[in-house]
């Protein structure tokens, strides 16, 4: 498993790239969910995607997450084209290179926090003892070291999202994908989750986050605006949040 060191400024490499991707759904009338979008994510970057509903945010997310393949164009993860892969290999890739964080958390209801975190490693055939140890480390990392054996129903929304984030990190993914990660949380808890994302970013994680809230999007380094399935503009965020995040890069693991 590779450990992602924080990228050195100026020498960053592209780890995930979509090139001129198109995706059309045929629901009676053809709907062009994505109509020629190119976007590359550099190692250690934090990108937010904004846009009104129906602008293609989710479709872009599914393409980057290997849940879907484009009708035209290519998606490459770590230099490998996703389109050419078999369903089984794509599932593999999803498990090892992508970490999903959802708006609705999507934890397995009957499994404990620790077991939820081990799930991606189960499908990746990691040895049992290693899984337990790693789940513990990850849950401690997100501040839930004392909630290992709690069921999701015994956790608050913020805690559940932390479990989901720990699970997303289980296999050391190349890309962390977050779909409205604060959408189901109150403002304060949402802010805490965003702090966690900042910390992960400072650790050198590559993050792509979909949101429709400007305030949340501004935690990222740049904001990609989608309109009607096309890329409208890429806005570099030079706000205080990013800068303050950089300043706190020494405070890894602290709450």
């Amino acid at each position: 498993m590779s450990v992602h060191e924080p990228g050195t400024p100026g020498e960053t490499a592209t780890v995930v790239a979509a090139t001129d991707v198109r995706r059309t759904y045929h629901l009676g009338e053809p709907v062009h969910a994505l109509d020629g979008v190119s976007l590359s994510l550099e190692e250690g970057s934090f990108t937010a995607v904004m846009g009104p509903s129906g602008s293609g945010k989710s479709t872009l997310m599914n393409l980057f997450g290997c849940l879907d393949t484009p009708d035209e164009g290519t998606v490459e993860i770590d230099g490998r084209s996703v389109t050419a892969l078999s369903g089984s290999d794509r599932a593999r890739l999803r498990g090892t290179e992508i970490g999903f964080v959802f708006q609705t958390f999507n934890l397995m209801p009957r499994l404990t926090a620790a077991e939820n975190v081990t799930m991606p490693m189960v499908f990746h055939d990691v040895v049992d003892e290693d899984r337990r140890a790693r789940a513990r480390t990850l849950l401690e990392r997100v501040g839930l070291g004392d909630r290992l054996d709690h069921a999701p129903s015994e956790l608050s929304g913020g805690q559940r999202q932390r479990v989901a984030i720990a699970r997303a990190l289980a296999n050391e993914p190349t890309l962390l994908l977050a779909d409205e990660p604060t959408g189901n949380l109150d403002t304060e808890t949402g802010a805490e989750i965003m702090d966690l994302f900042r910390e992960l970013h400072d650790d050198g994680r590559t993050i792509l986050m979909v949101t429709h809230e400007r305030a949340i999007a501004e935690h990222a380094d740049r904001i990609v605006h989608l309109v009607d399935g096309t890329l409208d503009e890429i806005e570099e965020v030079r706000g205080s949040k990013a800068a303050s995040g950089r300043d706190r890069s020494g405070s890894e693991g602290s709450e």
Partner: peptide, 11 residues
């Protein structure tokens, strides 16, 4: 969920 976190069809 399982598919999203890496479960293959055969799993």
């Amino acid at each position: 969920i399982m598919k999203a976190i890496g479960a293959r069809k055969r799993d």
